[in-house]
Design a binder for these strands. Structure first.
Lengths: 337, 337
DNA sequence: TTGAAAGCGCTAACAT
DNA sequence: ATGTTAGCGCTTTCAA
């Protein structure tokens, strides 16, 4: 199955392979007659240009990469949707990669995409990835950090103010009269999570009277939520928190499900709020209150920042979106959604 | 920012560029001393091999592609997870692409990956994509159709028996005493959906007494479910179906949420079952019954089929998984999950 | 063990 | 308008 190249096309069309290339890249500079012949040749041979040759010659591809830690978290998937849309509009393809929460896989993809000379990378990570991105950038591949404010002024980033988000969440619970709060999530070394906790702590401090327990957790998934539920349900009811702030909606959803099954009244016994406001938060057993950050908009902003970076424009590099409280039944009771 | 290539590394290390290449590909055949020098040179220059050159020379990459119609549907995302895991185990990278339910985007990615000479493609599609895959295959790139049984014996595919799934769903509703069933989904031109409906119809026929209304829908999303809810709620209660089979869980979830909000009792007034059994089905307002097809296992099987195809092994090309009924409260009432 | 050299498929500058 | 040609960065065969 000898791959057919421009050479074969050229022979069949009775032109030089340079002309075939011209046809592909500057069709206007080829006579109608040859265009016709070349088209037919391409057609009958089923010619598909080999990208390696083109890219080797040109030195750059027409794709960008989006590396996500966990595609099966709808939060990252929705961002991907926005990225895809915006990129398509600018004629760019998007290669999505799933690092599966593994630092090693993340590194592998970072390097792979650099080798592939993508135009730029969008990187959502739970790790401290900024150093690595700095190195990549220095070698010529720009990137945008997604979901995490960059520390360096040179590193573009699109993020949500997680301290503000954490504050909003805890403040909401406190305003509802809750005093024994718990924050569920971790590892706290992850910037986004540490920030959320910091925000929550600030709200606690401000309240004067409430307390905050930190329940550490490494799996920020529905399964992780189930695990916490188990631990919580083993406690006597009086020792359970009356207000829970989960570091993301997945945890909250897993927890919520088990609490309800066990007969714990939500929000009466325990008020629960999540983070991210994924689409499924609204349709959960008890509609879940959450802290909303933009999703598609996030992806779109990231691509636009990257485009500016590629073009060498000097846009504001650090875009920070404000989080928003979405109160539903899991905190404010049956009345509202 | 002149990209550094093997040449620069070679000069700095005081060897020929061929030796650098040897070091990269057959480190054992290079003397310890030069290895040392080359390593240092790579280190200080920050050399990252250009994939285009390598690929041009070798004629093939080390990546496979997974094209999904809709990453933000957790069903496809979970498959992606399985794909990533299995591929990593075989040293392959996965490029995920989101065609965003657009035939044009799908075509674009099909071609892009072919140009990139990926080792193979996994394609989940709502379209009739088999002809296109046949053409791609003929030119040397193997593929596995995911979620849709291939008609051609030459086209590997991993799928679920959707006719059986549809049958199970309708049979379940009928067994619960429901007689006025509705199937929600579409366009029915999509094979998977048509099959589910066919299965449901068969169950209806078998029952003798039940009827099946088909409510067509083009958006197989939560929003689509909301739209159907609106239409259903406008009917007098007596004219509503008493058993609803939604073509996927997203639709079911959207519908369920609005029905419950409107005071419709589920499952008493309307029993509802979805399809796919995404992770969120279990934690919805009323835990959703669904037809379960394997997820990660699906992705793993797809990669393995592709590997066999690449290796030229003659495995059974059509892998069909049996669907499974998962009964939860949305059909069997409060007692069970 | 190392180096020299050819050539993968393509683009574009240049010559015609 | 078309053809000729050099060369992108790499791997590998072959020779030393």
């Amino acid at each position: 199955m000898a791959r057919v190249g421009m050479r074969e096309v050229a022979v069949l069309a009775g032109v030089s392979h340079g002309t075939v290339s011209h046809y592909l890249n500057h069709p206007d500079r080829v006579s109608a007659e040859k265009v016709e012949r070349i088209q037919r040749a391409i057609q009958t041979l089923g010619f598909v240009p080999n990208n390696a040759g083109r890219q080797l010659r040109l030195g750059s591809s027409t794709a960008i990469a989006y590396i996500a830690p966990d595609v099966s978290n709808p939060y990252f998937a929705t961002i991907a949707e926005g990225v895809e849309q915006r990129a398509a509009k600018s004629g760019l393809s998007v290669f999505i990669a799933n690092s599966n929460r593994s630092r090693a896989r993340e590194d592998a993809y970072l390097e792979l995409f650099e080798r592939h000379q993508v135009r730029g990378m969008l990187v959502a990570s739970h790790e401290g990835v900024e150093d690595r991105l700095a190195a990549v950038r220095q070698r010529g591949t720009p990137s945008v950090l997604v979901g995490q404010a960059a520390a360096s002024p040179d590193q573009p980033s699109v993020s949500v103010d997680d301290v503000a988000g954490g504050f909003l969440a805890a403040q909401h619970l406190i305003g509802l009269g809750r005093r024994r709060l718990a924050f569920i999530g971790g590892p706290l070394g992850i910037r986004q999570l540490g920030d959320r906790l910091d925000g929550a702590s600030a709200a606690i401090r401000e309240s004067g009277s409430a307390t905050l327990e930190v329940i550490n957790l490494t799996e920020r998934t529905i399964a992780g939520g189930h695990a916490v539920a188990k631990a919580l349900l083993e406690r006597p009811a009086a020792l359970r928190p009356d207000g829970v702030f989960a570091a993301n909606d997945l945890i909250a959803l897993g927890l919520l499900q088990d609490l309800v099954l066990a007969g714990v009244r939500v929000p009466d016994d325990v008020a629960l709020i999540g983070y991210d406001d994924i689409e499924f938060a609204a349709s959960s057993i008890i509609p879940l209150s959450s802290i909303r950050s933009p999703h598609e908009a996030f992806g779109i902003a990231a691509v636009e920042l990257l485009l500016a970076e590629i073009a060498g424009e000097s846009a504001e590099r650090h875009q920070i979106f404000p989080p928003e409280l979405v109160a539903r039944s899991s905190t404010v009771g049956g009345g509202r959604r």
